[in-house]
Amino acid sequence: MTGKRDIPWLLASPGILLVTLVALLPAAILIVKAFQDVDTGALTLENFQAIFDSKIFGQAFWRTLRIAFFVTLVSVIGGYPLALLIARANPRYSLVIFVIVLFPLMVSVVVRTFGWVVILGPAGIVNEALMGIGLISEPLTMTQNEFGIVVGETHLLMPYMVLALLSVLRKLEPQLEEAALSLGANPLVAFFRVILPMTVPGLLSGVLLVFSLAITAFATPLVMGGARTPLLSTLVYRYALTSYDWASAAAVAFVLAVIAVAFVAVQKTVAWMWMSRHEF
């Protein structure tokens, strides 16, 4: 009995069914598992008690937030000039930068992280150069630690920041800053009083997006961080497949999922609030 109004649901049903069965239902089962006793299956909070008591979880939790903070910060610092250049350079140069920023998005994250391993490794170009000019005598440790993860994840996520900024910069007329300049503002004033305030929505959505992606990034911290620098995401993996402690893995996964979903909610709310206040 499918009436005309049911057709949309019918057409969408393969997609809905797939996502429900392969992502949402397993995720729901995992949440239940996080609240279950390993042996009896009774509902309990002891899995969370266990991870909150463990030193490694606490370290991983704060390390995850710390790294996400620095990744977001550096993405803004680097993403802003890149986005400004793309928006304001002549068309040909603008396209070149656009391609340079976008292309890495399609390249395997393993390849990109491996590139940083080669650059930052003990015999990498940075260490060779620094030792060559005699600035250091021992190679600096820049992989298998937080520094390496920050560099790798920044490279991973900077394009998203640039895209978020571009989405607002493209709507700004160049005449705006020309007007400010012709009225006697110097470029710095023009930037901070005219351009920056108008890009706040893009900046905000970029910051929220990059921060949430940095928290959930997996392959980069796995390759760059090694076993000694676990983040929440790699901790789920290590609990699940190295120490076979699935109760703890489920509890950590739950914490990670809550943070990620909360961020998406904040991001959507902010975007919605902005849209309803300023009609673009």
Binding site: V22, A23, L25, P26, A27, I29, L30, K33, I215, T216, F218, S233, T234, V236, Y237, A240, W246, A249, A250, A253, L256, A257, A260, V261, V264
Partner: peptide, 15 residues
């Protein structure tokens, strides 16, 4: 897109 990949991965593995 909204759920962390590692959570989905472990969830499928668990099932």
């Amino acid at each position: 897109l909204f759920l962390p990949g590692v959570v989905i991965g472990f969830a499928i593995f668990n099932v």
